[in-house]
Design a protein around this nucleic acid. Structure first.
Lengths: 191, 191
DNA sequence: CTACAAAACTAACAATTGTTAGTTTATTTT
DNA sequence: AAAATAAACTAACAATTGTTAGTTTTGTAG
């Protein structure tokens, strides 16, 4: 049955991503994964085709969402602060949806085999769009004239590592988180 | 000869840390490491005692420096902004000294075996000292009343991931970097 | 030049890796 | 109930892992 197969496959993916987060792709064996799922290693192959496929689908799926999302944001006609808040919001949403997958994307992308080049292209595209938002904001005077690289690095790093933190803070409402991060990242913390 | 042995050992450590950064501890084999050093895998054992020892010494050495450093900063009698700048400065300095080691500390600490508990204790100590600086700054009114966890997470994440970025920016003078990061992290980017 | 120690080598080990083949058990469809 | 499909199992594979043993080469001190 199709739905059952799918949900079992997705369960394996979910558990795999969790293990990848804890120990990294290379340190997770198919026997580890099988044990966590509750079956034998060979049985995994009734549902998935390879270890690499698990990593690849997990990462590429998320990376595509990010790239599509920022394209939507860049074409919308709004000011820089609104766009930056939308970027922050997207990171929070996607990370909350799949924190373990985000961990794999952050830490294990270099173990992609067939899809490595594609992933790097997606990432590069994303970073360019993000940089354009910042550049426009500086040109229009909405942002301070701080070093662009430092600013990009600082914000992107914080957002990319939200997966480390969001799962522990289920209590923080999403809106509070967006607001708090926006203030901290954009307006600073010094009174 | 002692100096020669030491420098060879340190060379192996340096190369190992670089490989760990690129692929992670688990994905680096002793044969990979040996090839990068220019010898055979078995020959490594004339200089080091195990793969685990390489990871352990690399990480613990850096973690101790961070913990000692922040203790010095917390006992000094200065205002919050000065202390936070000192923390930022320390991160930049230690990261510039050993960016690959910082990568191992960030990404491979969970593969520590004997020294895992000790590492976690050091990290916890560090985070508590950092938090106290921020709490004091909020109490004294030097910092805005933003969510402490968000603030801590945001700044610490940025600083901990400097290793991804500092090696590419050898041109940026250290002072510029400290200043740029301090402005971005503490005062924000919105005009 | 000899002797000794450091550092390289080859060969091999036991364990573990991802994966396949073939078979049996469960579950669903007819 | 029979037939078909899905999903589990056992057993095994070839390759790779960290590490050890034993040997040879290299370099230095007396």
């Amino acid at each position: 049955m199709k739905t059952n197969t799918l949900s079992r496959k997705q369960e394996i993916y979910r558990i795999a991503a969790k293990l990848f987060k804890e120990k990294g792709y290379s340190a997770v064996t198919m026997r580890d994964l099988a044990a966590a799922v509750g079956i034998k290693a060979a049985s995994l192959y009734n549902h998935i085709s390879s270890k690499q496929q698990i990593l690849s689908e997990t990462i590429i799926d998320i990376a595509e969402q990010f790239t599509e999302g920022i394209e939507m944001i860049t074409i919308q006609d709004s000011d820089t602060i609104t766009k930056l808040k939308a970027v922050i919001s997207q990171h929070i949403t996607l990370t909350a949806n799949n924190p373990y997958g985000m961990a794999a994307l952050n830490n294990d992308w270099m173990h992609l085999e067939g899809k490595l080049d594609y992933y790097l292209a997606l990432r590069s595209k994303y970073e360019k769009k993000f940089e354009k938002i910042v550049q426009d904001g500086k040109m229009s005077g909405e942002l301070k004239d701080v070093n662009t690289e430092i600013l990009l690095y600082s914000i992107l790093t914080t957002l990319r590592n939200l997966y480390l933190w969001i799962p522990k803070k289920a209590d923080l409402k999403k809106d509070e988180l967006i607001e708090g991060l926006s203030v901290t990242l954009l307006q600073g913390v010094v009174k």
